[in-house]
Amino acid sequence: MIPVCRIEDLPIGESVRIEIDEVTPAIAVFHTDEGLYAVDDLCSHQDASLSEGWVEGCFVECPLHAALFDLRTGAPSCLPARRPVRTHEVSVLEGMVHVRPAVREEAVA
């Protein structure tokens, strides 16, 4: 698990972007009315940071072309995005938000 921030430093409706290393894609962590969620920060449609998008309920709207992603599943709910973004496990331990990055699927040759 990777520590992100203290829960009180991530108000409801806000997000934070974390970078782990040079090979792991950045992750956006969102605090919604329904809970905490984490997805890959990069929109699956085009290069845009989802952590800079708008959160409503359990959805984030991409700031570039308004594609909506369900933070619970990573699935897009409208065009222009067609592919989901990867989701990650989030937990709070002793007031600290942690993320467990999902295992990357290796490309099949």
Rank of each mutant, 00 (worst) to 15 (best):
V60Q: 07
P3V: 03
P25T: 00
A109R: 12
V103L: 10
H45L: 02
C5I: 07
E14M: 09
S15W: 10
V55H: 00
T32M: 07
D9C: 09
S91P: 05
L68I: 07
R86N: 09
C43I: 08
P3Q: 11
T24K: 02
H88C: 01
P63A: 10
R104H: 11
E19I: 00
A67C: 10
P76I: 06
Y37L: 03
V103C: 02
D40V: 00
A102K: 03
V23D: 13
C78T: 10
C62Q: 09
F69E: 03
I27M: 05
C43F: 09
V85K: 07
S44H: 05
V90N: 03
A26T: 06
P76A: 10
V103F: 08
H65Y: 10
D21A: 04
I27W: 09
L10K: 04
E34Y: 15
R104E: 15
W54K: 09
C5H: 03
D41K: 01
E106Y: 12
V16G: 06
V29K: 02
T32L: 08
S44E: 09
D41W: 11
I12M: 03
V55N: 00
V108A: 15
E22F: 08
A107H: 12
E56V: 02
R17Q: 07
V39E: 06
V55K: 01
A109L: 14
S91Q: 13
A109V: 13
A38Q: 01
V97T: 00
V108P: 06
I27L: 05
C43E: 05
E52L: 08
I18Q: 00
D47E: 15
S51F: 05
G74C: 05
R86V: 12
T73H: 06
A48W: 12
I2N: 00
A75E: 15
P76W: 11
T73Y: 06
S49F: 11
V4S: 06
R83A: 12
E106N: 12
G57A: 05
L36K: 02
S15C: 12
E52G: 02
A28K: 08
Y37G: 04
A67T: 09
A109W: 14
V99H: 04
I20W: 08
A26H: 05
E14D: 13
E34R: 14
L93K: 15
R100S: 14
I7M: 08
L50N: 05
E105T: 14
H65V: 02
Y37K: 04
V99L: 02
E61C: 05
G13D: 05
R72P: 00
H45G: 11
R72T: 04
I7D: 01
V16K: 13
A75Q: 15
G13F: 04
H88F: 02
E19K: 08
D41I: 02
V108H: 14
C5M: 12
E94C: 07
D70L: 06
R6S: 15
E52T: 01
E22K: 10
L68P: 04
E8Y: 13
D70Y: 11
D41F: 11
E34H: 15
I7S: 11
E56K: 01
I7L: 12
E61T: 12
R83G: 01
S91R: 12
V103D: 11
Y37M: 08
R17G: 00
W54F: 14
C62P: 10
E56L: 00
H45Y: 10
E8G: 04
L36H: 04
I7G: 03
C58D: 15
P101S: 08
E14R: 15
